[in-house]
Each structure stands twice: as structure tokens, then as C-alpha cells.
Nucleic acid binder design. Structure first.
Lengths: 250, 250
DNA sequence: CCTGCCCTATTTGTTGGACCAGTTCCGGTT
DNA sequence: AACCGGAACTGGTCCAACAAATAGGGCAGG
């Protein structure tokens, strides 16, 4: 039954549109303004450390009210791409990692099934889908490094630390692909994945199951066994899915 | 209470237990307000789907001005934890993954050779690597839509418009995967891809080669011919690579 | 000359209001 | 009872003003 490819974590059919930015067409003046400011940054080729025009200047530049400008700047601040201080104005920074951490400081909010599926579905596409390139590029050092990380995970005492090793394992795996876009994606999604992994390892005895699954994945990778790798990795990523099994639609 | 589709994540989070261990000591009224609203959500045990008080109610509850409340709400909106619709109010959601992807959109887009390689590598991962899922999900409608777009591309007069159709073709292809994160990635990477495609079609007689390659890909997809699909798509994606090699960096 | 302090102008932070364009919902009309 | 209209809300945007913070210039003293 379990063919060489198991149905991965993709969401059920909703709407298939070609252009499909889906729901939001960004009619809001504030969001338009964010786009304008982004364009301004791009156009002037501004980078970290450079200054943006003052709020009132932006008001005039884009004929908007100051409140609108402020809300737009608030978005940029929340993104962690600008730091704005009184009298000095807005300076471009890159604190996006902190922004993501802040995002997940909402511990009051549960990890939604949707978030879980989106994240794991993406990972599945990368980590399972990149099989050919992985098999082609993986070296003995990569294998050794993965095994070392996995061993380290087994000896961790807390779920939090084990989750970090879990992330390091998968991060090291995709690092073999040597693709900046993907590495950057994993860097930014780190807090999200950590959260999922922490949830997973704490419930699944990370010293046991998780370690064994990782080991099997590395073995399959080393042996260039397509079927085994696909199967192991897919099962591994789907492991946490059982936690969401009782999901009625809404 | 719309909390049946989520798994409660009782996490202690030793790292960011109390407010403000980070750089922000921020006694800013707006950020305090964010904390207050978070506390409110926690206190009332609100979950996804529940409504928040109106802006004016929040003004009175926390004795703040409406603009301050709005900036706080803007932060929550940016985090993707509330969806606020005019005349309806604010509803708690969990679109935090989308927020993460929005962060990614702040990468400066320069079409260096590295960026090109990374982008094409990513696309190859998605469009070639997801072959199994594609074969499984593709319908006759999808095939027809792809052919229609390809035909439209052939009749375009300018390279710019043809590139747009080229993008629509590939965007429509990955839309079959029905994975929100992938669609979002393509939306974000659209400018980069457009530039790549514009470069490609203008040099390669988009009426001819590009159209034929697309047609061959669709045929292979329709016939569920793994080998042919992999070969055609890989060749198609690598076609631009040769061109880029010729072109010296700006 | 340099050094250190203070002052002011500029900038962001916050407030309270106003109006608009819609939605919701209640009450009156038919 | 069904239908319709209007009033009361809602968020979206804008305006004007004041408070707070501070960078940078001017000034006094060395």
C-alpha cells in the first residue's frame, strides 16, 4: 500500500487560481503605502543603516495622512525591517528573526492545524522532493555531521534542547542542497519549526522514536535508497499529524 | 468556541517567559496595549474564530486613544493573529505562517547570477520534485488551463507580455499542488521570475522554443510520463541557465 | 584652539476629535 | 407575517494639537 510515494501534507482543495494572491487585494491605503515604501527602498537602493524620510515627508510624498503613514511604519517596525526613534527618524535594520520570535510569543494562541499543515507540507516538498539532488550531492562528511547531530539530540535532557538539535538536523540536511533561498527560508521559519518540534519530541520520547527515525533517514540517504528515504522522511514529517487527527472543518 | 480544530500547546517557554527580556524595554503605549490585548485574549480564553471588542471599546477599556488602539491592532494584524474587517470587527485567526512569508518578501531583489541559480534551483525542486503529487492531482481542467495559457503566450507581441504568460504557466502548474506556502512563494518571487523569463523569452523566440517546451511538459504531465516530464522540465529550467552564462553580469 | 553644557528645533508619540462608507439590526409599514 | 428603511454601530482615513525625546548648534569657559 505504501507506494514509493505517500500522499504528503498538502491542504485540501480550496480554490485554484492562477495568479491567486487569494483573499487580499490590498485595497487599504496603509498596505498600499507599505508597498510604496518598499518600492522606495528598492528604488533608492537603501540597505541596513540607511535612513528613511521622516513621517511628515512621507505624508507629502504619498499624499497621505500622518496616521496612515504611522500605521504603515508600524507594519515595517513589526516586520523588524526598520527601527524608528524620536528625532532621528526611521533607520533600516534587519531584525526579522526577532520579529518571527515575537510572532510566536503568542503562547496564548494554540498552534493551529493549518499552521502545522502548511509548515510540514512545505518541509515535505523540500526535504522529500529534493531527493535527487540530495542523493547527488551528499558526501561522507554530510552523513557524519547528520549522525553527530542526531547523537547529540539523543543525549539532550530537555525537550527544548532536543528540539533545537532536531532543527539542526533538518537544517543541516537541506544545507546539502546549497541553495540560499531555501537556507533563508529555514532560517526564518526556525521559530515555527522549533515550536512544532518541541511539541513533537516532548510527546514522542525524543530519545527513542525521533532518534530512530533520523537514523533511518540518514541510512537511506547514505545508501541512496530512494524508496526508503521517501518513506522514512514522509513518515517522519507526518508523525506529528496524529496530534491533529481530531480536526473537524470550520 | 472555535477551538476544536487546534491542539493546545502548553509550553513553558523558559526563554521568553516574562515580558521584555529583549532589547525593547519599550514603555510605548502601543506595545503595552498589545500586551494588554494579549492578556485579554488569554484571560477570556479566546480562540480562533472568536471576536475581539471593537476599537472604541478597547479605547475605553484601556483608556487609550483610538489611534493608539489602531496601531496596536495593526501589530496584531501584521502578526497574523487577528483579521479585522470593516463594519464587522476583529476576529482572532492564525495566519502566522503568512506573516512569516511576508517577512521573506523584504529580500532585496537583485538579479545576480547567484540569485538566478538559487531561484531556478528552488523552482526545479518544486516543479520537478513534486512530480508524484502533480501526477496524482492533475485534472483534465488543469491540462486545459495550461494549454490555454501556453497558447496565449504564443500570440503575445512583446517579450514582456510573453514573460507574464510564461510566469502564469508555471504559476498555474504549481497551483495544482494546492499548497498555500508554495503559491505564496511564487507570488513573492514573481518579480525575480519575471525578469528571468523576460530574459529568456526575448532571447529564445518565445513563440517557438518556449512554447514547444511548455507543450511537451503538458503532454508528459497528461500522459503521466515520469521520465519525459522530468527530462522536459529539467531541460526547460536549465535552458535559461545557458543564456545567463552568456550574459555577463551588469 | 578645544571642551563641555544648555537650548532650540525637529521628530516621533499620543490624544481627541471629525467624517465617510459601509454593515447590522431593530422597528415600523404594508 | 413579510418587507423595507433608517438609525446605530463598525472600521478607514484624515486633521490639529500637544507631549516627550533628542540631535545638533550655539555659547560660555577653559
Amino acid at each position: 500500500m505504501a507506494r514509493d510515494n505517500v500522499v504528503p501534507l498538502v491542504r485540501k482543495s480550496t480554490l485554484r487560481s492562477t495568479e491567486g494572491p487569494s483573499v487580499h487585494l490590498t485595497d487599504s491605503a496603509v498596505e498600499n503605502l507599505v508597498g510604496e515604501i518598499k518600492a522606495l527602498i528598492d528604488q533608492r537602493n537603501l540597505g541596513v543603516g540607511d535612513q528613511l524620510p521622516s513621517e511628515r515627508e512621507l505624508c507629502e510624498m504619498f499624499s497621505s495622512s500622518r496616521n496612515t503613514v504611522r500605521e504603515a511604519m508600524r507594519i515595517l517596525k513589526t516586520y523588524g525591517v526598520v527601527d524608528v526613534r524620536p528625532k532621528v527618524g526611521a533607520v533600516i535594520i534587519d531584525r526579522r528573526m526577532d520579529a518571527v520570535f515575537d510572532l510566536y510569543s503568542f503562547n496564548t494562541l494554540e498552534l493551529s492545524r493549518e499552521t502545522f499543515l502548511d509548515t510540514q507540507g512545505f518541509r515535505s516538498l523540500i526535504e522529500v522532493g529534493s531527493l535527487d539532488i540530495l542523493f547527488q550531492r551528499t558526501t561522507a562528511e554530510d552523513i557524519a555531521a547528520l549522525r553527530a547531530i542526531n547523537d547529540a539530540m539523543q543525549t539532550e535532557e530537555t525537550a527544548e534542547r532536543a528540539a533545537l538539535q532536531d532543527f539542526r538536523f533538518h537544517s543541516r540536511l537541506v544545507a546539502i542542497l546549497d541553495n540560499r533561498q531555501i537556507n533563508e527560508m529555514y532560517r526564518i521559519m526556525k521559530p515555527v519549526m522549533l515550536r512544532i518540534m518541541e511539541n513533537g519530541v516532548s510527546r514522542r520520547k525524543f530519545g527513542g522514536e525521533n532518534f530512530a527515525e533520523h537514523a533511518a533517514i540518514v541510512d537511506a540517504l547514505e545508501a541512496r535508497n530512494r524508496i526508503a528515504y521517501q518513506y522514512r522522511m514522509t513518515m517522519h514529517l507526518e508523525a506529528g499529524l496524529a496530534l491533529f487527527k481530531d480536526a473537524p472543518p470550520t
